[in-house]
């Protein structure tokens, strides 16, 4: 029990960027653009976050907020970088998967290149603080026994939770959400109703970039001490897995993200738990991927993803 409780902060820490990045994927896929380059955008966001944090830390005015400004930087740079995906798939009709793959590879190159230019090494300099843990959460931390679970968690999880709710509201309740979904299901229908499919998809991809960039920055600024080539190590793809596992729904994504976070924490803590310590830790690393395949088999036959996702939209073709 006490191990379970002590696993909560670790679970939340890992789950936070997964959830936020998966929400990013949700916007993009709901609009019909497959965003396979979440990983790459997270790298760029993580790099930007770490860099801004390092550079501002010693500044007397901005210093105290360096971590949060880092998150903001990740978000903004994520938007800018996601424009590559938008331009290539929306304007130039590139295959979404191929363009996304190229953008992923480019992210790995460009972030480390910039590290070399700015810091003269293949990683950013370590920041001293990043985002700090919350020592106590009012009310929750005071609950006996389980209150401990809410001690020493990062405030970013609350950003994730709020974003889940906001995403749900935007996608299912607002005008923009209805239009977004129509573009992902049948863009020709949307266009015939006077909806600008290109603009809607641009907006969706940029939101996607903002969230993925933010997720990358959160990951580096909570999980790490600096940005390196392996900072993101496939979490972008786990986010895609969470999106699928959560059936392209914000709440499902939240559940999947928490679960994947838990399985990752379990991998770390397993050695302390009887029986589980017999299972190799690599197994826990594999769980999200294997489960996603299993989920896909279970969902198969029932169309759950956006119908036009990945299809190249050409207004001229009808």
């Amino acid at each position: 029990m006490s191990i379970l409780i002590s696993m909560v902060p670790a679970t939340l820490m890992v789950a936070t960027p997964i959830i936020i990045a998966a929400l990013g994927g949700l916007f993009s896929e709901r609009s019909g653009i497959v965003n396979i380059c979440i990983e790459g955008i997270m790298m760029v966001g993580g790099f930007a976050g770490a860099t801004v944090c390092v550079l501002l830390e010693s500044d007397p005015t901005f210093g105290p907020y360096a971590g949060w400004l880092g998150l903001l930087a990740g978000l903004v740079v994520g938007i800018i970088y996601s424009l590559l995906l938008a331009v290539s798939t929306i304007n130039f009709k590139a295959d979404h998967t191929i363009a996304g793959t190229a953008i992923n590879m480019l992210a790995a190159g460009i972030t480390i290149y910039l590290c070399q230019i700015i810091f003269g090494q293949q990683r950013t300099i370590a920041f001293s603080k990043g985002i700090s843990k919350m020592k106590k959460i009012p009310l929750l931390s005071d609950i006996p026994i389980i209150g401990q679970a809410f001690t020493g968690i990062y405030p970013t999880i609350f950003i994730a939770l709020i974003l889940v709710l906001v995403t749900w509201f935007v996608v299912y309740k607002t005008r923009f959400g209805l239009r977004l979904r129509s573009c992902g299901e049948n863009p020709h229908a949307a266009a015939s109703m006077g909806i600008n499919v290109y603009k809607t998809r641009y907006a969706a991809v940029m939101i996607s970039g903002a969230l993925a960039g933010l997720a990358g920055a959160i990951m580096v600024l909570t999980n790490g001490i600096q940005y390196t080539a392996s900072s993101i190590h496939g979490v972008g793809f786990i986010a895609i897995a969470a999106l699928i596992f959560g059936k392209w729904h914000p709440l499902g994504t939240l559940g999947a993200g928490l679960f994947f976070g838990f399985s990752s924490a379990l991998g770390v803590y397993a050695s302390m738990i009887p029986l589980l310590n017999l299972i190799p830790s690599e197994f826990f690393s594999c769980i999200p991927y294997i489960l996603t395949i299993v989920a896909l088999i279970i969902f198969s036959g029932k169309a759950v993803g956006p119908k036009a996702s990945g299809q190249i939209y050409d207004a001229g073709k009808r």
């Binding site: 607002t174 005008r175 209805l178 979904r181 129509s182 049948n186 020709h188 949307a190 119908k307 009808r318």
Partner: peptide, 27 residues
């Protein structure tokens, strides 16, 4: 060839692009 979104309701299809809002700005 009908321009309809299969998984939307009739209403959602009809109002698409010209959606009336409630006072809370929801559709």
């Amino acid at each position: 060839h009908f321009k309809l979104v299969d998984c939307f309701t009739v209403t959602e299809n009809i109002i698409l692009g010209k959606e009336p809002l409630t006072k809370y700005k929801t559709v």
